[in-house]
Amino acid sequence: MALATRADRPPSLIGSVWRSTVGKKAVMAVTGVIMLAYLVAHVVGNLKIFFGAGEFNAYGHWLRTVGEPFLHHEWFLWIARAALGTAVVLHGVAAYQLSRRDLAARPRQYERKRPRASYATRTMRWGGVIIALFIVWHVLDLTTLTVNPNAQEGRPYENLVASFDRPAVTAFYIVAMLALGLHVRHGFWSAAQTLGANSARRDRVLKFLANALALVLTCGFIAVPVGVLTGVVS
């Protein structure tokens, strides 16, 4: 009698998930939700700009002291940066690889193209590229202060106002935030779908939540440059 033997090493969970389209989408969904949670915290922090330089700069300083004395100065900040950086890279690489595959799977378009999907759905790829470029600019402008006209360490309020005194920067910021809103509108619901959390019963609630999140984030972020433009923040 032959015995059942196992010759091949079984594939690893991470390897097989990353190789499949469904698994790679799950990676995009999880990293997307992580970034979304961060954005909610970010927009709440941003709105302190309307309460003056003192409160905003103190908030910026506090971010460096979170977790002390358990964590050393700025450790929390660096852990968050590492997690977010990893999420951005995984999200982007998965999106690129999946998009390449998707475009190859439909080599020819129909004579009469009739896209019935929403604008947000159709702009996920290029919207994502705009957001990625914006993140690079945003970090150079307000984190490393490389391209900031004020560039004073520890004075985020003054740096921010100086940055938004440039109309082109303000315009790019607003465009990027609109792209973000559209991205979140489709992305949040899509993440629920990809992670299997959607059902006929939850569909409307998830779509409502996606729209609400997109609206709150976009309005919250755009309020800051509008505040600078109108002189509420100076």
Binding site: T21, K24, L98, A105, T121, H186
Partner: peptide, 9 residues
Amino acid sequence: GFGGCTNTG
């Protein structure tokens, strides 16, 4: 060689 889902519906 099928593509992935982008939830276009």
